[in-house]
Amino acid sequence: MTAGADPWVPSPRAAARDAFRRAQRRRAVLVASVATVVVVAAVVYVVTTAPGWERAREAFFSPERAWEVLPEVAEGLWLNLRVWVVAGVVGLVVGMLLAVVRTSRIPALFPLRVFAVVYVDVFRGVPLLLVLLLVGFGLPALRLPWLPVEAAFLGGLSIVLCYTAYLAEIFRAGIESVHPSQVAAARSLGLTRAQAAWRVVLPQAVRNVTAPVASMLVSLQKDSGLISILGAVDAIRAAQIATTGDYNFTPYVVAGVLFLLVSIPLTRLVDAWSARQGWRGELRGVSGAGVVR
């Protein structure tokens, strides 16, 4: 058989099957649309017929108020985004280092290994809110002259402390998911332990944990709002300030929408990226993995 020269013309039978499948797909789309309309209509009905709907709409969904507070809340969000980026980068780098240290077998690193274990145990086990309060009010009490005491810095530091521990655990799981035979293959080629770790184990480990790491980064983005506890004027704090005068809670809704505007595209982007890389776990490279009917 020569490549490309395929004289096959679909038979009427194949055409009939295709028509049937197309009809089924159309039906599926129709069912999905009807189901969506019904659910949305039901929610709208329940909410708008609630006894307090009129007042709630005024208090939470006032368009004029939303427009008024948008600049302040958006400016607050800018602080959230900066904290998110810095905390994310530091968390990724240090988390990876901790995971490498913890899984290494080098004797000289033993004290560091103990530190990594204790660190992860502590900061994974203590609620983020508590870390924020202790760092935010505890560190300034030491009156260290070189230590910045702005709320944004201390809040960001607390978030970094906790997320580094979470990320370290994810990376460790990734490293341990790489089969030992991979190390054997690398060592048999003459690579040193460090070369095998850097060239063979870590790249595969990172691929294996892309999805959980990405979801950690998304949740870091919204947890950056917790720095408002310490008084840093982020999106949440800005919204809070805006509600104090008139007890109109629309600014909170504005802040929520702004957070969603960042996190939803981010999630989709990561999904698309990892799909393009063919990193979707078990299914990569398996032909005919999906049973069709």
Binding site: W8, S11, R13, R17, F20, R21, V291, V292, R293
Partner: peptide, 22 residues
């Protein structure tokens, strides 16, 4: 075993064409 859909042709089991999607 109907784990793959054919592009064309018949898979007759006891005379019934089981490749038909219905």
């Amino acid at each position: 075993d109907l784990l793959e859909e054919v592009d064309d042709g018949q898979v007759l089991l006891d005379g019934e064409d089981v490749a038909d999607p219905w």
